[in-house]
Design a protein around this nucleic acid. Structure first.
Lengths: 152, 152
DNA sequence: GCACTCCTGACCAATGAGGTCAGGAAAGTC
DNA sequence: GACTTTCCTGACCTCATTGGTCAGGAGTGC
């Protein structure tokens, strides 16, 4: 139940691309500096994003990366899935495929709910929301609660 | 963003203990068989749960494990934390401690919201709920949506 | 032709996941 | 007191993942 460095880096780099808008391709080096991400590691991540069709790239002078879609059509969920794989799998299998026996029979519903709750956040927030800071109300409300900021 | 085998096993074993109620200590072997968990692996997990004060145990004939608290006072979140550590940490640090620069500044709020949404499910469901199948309405509603059961 | 930038695969150390194995230490039974 | 039962603990094992680095190749623009 943790967020990997890769996912964190991927979202941050994508946010930087979203902010750049249509000012032309952005170099990997600039992304790395802006977000303090090791360049060579970032390049692998950007490649994955490209393979998943989320970003595009061009080589050479004046080359760089840019979003394949408008920033308000790219969700955090898509980016996380591109680099981390499916969200909320249990023992590497999707919750809808698991069958529990005995007293744990209803555990499947709990994991389904876990995935659904993650989706309500990750699929709701777009890169445009993230860059503007105007998060969707569902998400904003969750983050607004004082309770949400304390460790447990 | 995945659920480990350990967490899954831990919750299932705990559910079995909750179902056993006060009929005396339950042997590890019985838990292992009921939930089809490798016994020796399960014993390590039960030990962790014991160290976190969630269950108790006695050795010898008539020995076994039982819940340290009533089943309606133990949440899934406690069990998951006992075996997996803190929920929704980013790069192994809690989201409230991270500072993002540039265009990703508001990413912190997103991760906070992610954690909050996980908590609304995991801290709401108790072992008693799980065993009875009567999940809290917030969770039940999430799991009831057809949408929640399809892969993406 | 040359500089620039992405693209790709190989590699690497540390950690975690998912276990197994062997034995020790309490608790109950005879 | 011996014996059985069951938990307790640490050591160990294999494999995959995490979080990178390194070296070089392949397009692109001037």
């Amino acid at each position: 139940m943790r967020v990997s460095a890769k996912a964190d880096y991927a979202v941050r780099a994508a946010a930087e691309l979203a902010a750049a808008g249509d000012e032309g391709p952005v170099k990997g080096e600039r992304l790395a500096e802006a977000q303090e991400i090791p360049l060579q590691f970032l390049e692998h991540i950007l490649l994955e994003l490209k393979h998943h069709g989320l970003i595009r790239a061009r080589r050479g002078a004046k080359g760089g990366y840019w979003l394949a879609k408008p920033a308000d059509e790219v969700t955090i969920a898509e980016i996380v899935r591109a680099v981390e794989g499916p969200i909320a799998h249990v023992q590497s299998t999707p919750p809808e495929d698991i069958e529990y026996k005995g007293s744990a029979a209803h555990l499947q519903e709990v994991w389904i709910a876990v995935r659904a709750s993650l989706r309500t956040v990750l699929e709701e927030v777009t890169l445009a929301d993230l860059v503007s800071g105007e998060l969707p109300s569902v998400v904003g409300d969750l983050a607004a609660s004082k309770d949400a900021w304390v460790a447990r």
